[in-house]
Nucleic acid binder design. Structure first.
Lengths: 112, 112
DNA sequence: TTATGATATATCATTAAATGATATAAAGGA
DNA sequence: TCCTTTATATCATTTAATGATATATCATAA
């Protein structure tokens, strides 16, 4: 990740990927952290530093937007642009996994 | 990524992922670049800077090792440790895609 | 009442990763 | 000869991730 903003190039980092996934339902930051940790059984943790800096970046890029929120909470929702990005990113990652499976299968066949 | 080396934490960056995949057959650096670009139809390009710095890092971490090579070419092969890491990384990425599909499916169901 | 832990957001400084640019050199063909 | 491709390598810069820290609110247990 350097020399080119990942959002501009249309790819999502792991953190951004999980955040957009969590925002399939309108949500505030703290809940995103908990949901991601929950989803991954603790494998993936987005700490406050990563979370709020990423949320700001995603907001600036109009991938997500604020949606009110009560008290000190600030709710976020994904934009149409963000939804498209997420779906394309899922496909990109699916292709990566598929490629890996194909390559490993060929390797096993060679070994027989 | 910061504050924690991705290799130490057991995850692979996109570049490292593709490199290890390419090294399912013994190969020298330049061929890795071409194969990755080829595999992804140009979507993913690992330039010389990224390639050789990543190869060095992977070698230092004993994820890959040099394997002779003729002339100026330097061949690399994946180690047992590297193979395990790659396979675990494939599973991690598969889980991410699966989670995303599940979440999106639920979202579509809600919309009906 | 008070203090403690959980909730909630935010920023700074540091470390890691990615990469454009550049350099070098050999090999092969026009 | 000259140009392109092959092949490896490093530097300096930019982007990403995050530990540490700060702040404030709220519920609840002592």
């Amino acid at each position: 990740m350097a020399r080119k903003d990942s959002l501009e190039s249309g790819t999502l980092t792991d953190a951004a990927f999980y955040i957009l996934l969590s925002l399939q339902t309108e949500q505030h930051g703290y809940l995103i952290m908990q949901q991601v940790e929950d989803w991954t059984g603790g494998e993936m943790k987005i700490g406050p530093a990563s979370l709020y800096t990423t949320l700001k970046k995603l907001t600036d890029a109009e991938v997500i937007e604020t949606a009110g929120g009560s008290g000190k909470r600030k709710a976020y929702r994904i934009t149409a642009k963000g939804q498209t990005m997420l779906e394309e990113e899922i496909e990109r990652r699916r292709r990566m996994v598929q490629l890996a499976e194909d390559v490993l299968t060929k390797r096993e066949e060679r070994a027989e």
